[in-house]
């Protein structure tokens, strides 16, 4: 399994734990965790500093993003992230939505951003499926 850097943005600690454990299981070890969109954006904005601290573990290549979160939710994060991509080296970073919502309107809204590559529903994703999706990147 190739080493890729991952950022999980989810306010639910258990959901972050479960996803992280799945990722570790398939060999993805560089996993950052943030509990809302605001702290995740701040983390990405500290680009240069984080490069120095984390070296090749930063920036993340895949971001797993929840929708319902305090402060800055998933969709607001997508809009701000689109702006951020223009100034920072995040072109190769893609987003996989990771939400318990399976509403078609949520899926359609997320798909309107070209850097959103997938829409995973919590509780339904299997470890093999996750591995396939990560390897396909």
């Amino acid at each position: 399994m190739k080493q890729i850097n991952v950022l999980i943005i989810d306010d639910c600690e258990v959901d972050r734990y479960i996803l992280k454990r799945h990722l570790n299981k398939i060999g993805v070890m560089n996993v950052f965790e943030k509990d809302d969109g605001l702290s995740a954006l701040q983390f990405l904005k500290n680009y240069e500093e984080n490069l120095k601290i984390y070296k090749d573990k930063f920036p993340p290549i895949v971001i797993f993003l929840d929708i319902n979160m305090p402060n800055i939710g998933g969709f607001e994060f997508l809009e701000k992230f689109a702006e951020l991509r223009k100034t920072l080296e995040l072109k190769s970073c893609v987003i996989m939505m990771y939400s318990s919502s399976d509403l078609p309107e949520d899926k359609a809204r997320a798909s309107s951003f070209n850097f959103v590559k997938d829409f995973l529903t919590k509780g339904e994703i299997q470890i093999d499926e996750l591995q396939t999706k990560i390897e396909a990147l």
């Binding site: 639910c12 258990v14 959901d15 479960i18 318990s100 919590k122 509780g123």
Partner: peptide, 13 residues
């Protein structure tokens, strides 16, 4: 949705 979330998490755990 809110009732399902802790149940699915528990299943995984």
């Amino acid at each position: 949705h809110d009732l399902k979330a802790p149940l699915t998490s528990t299943k995984r755990l």
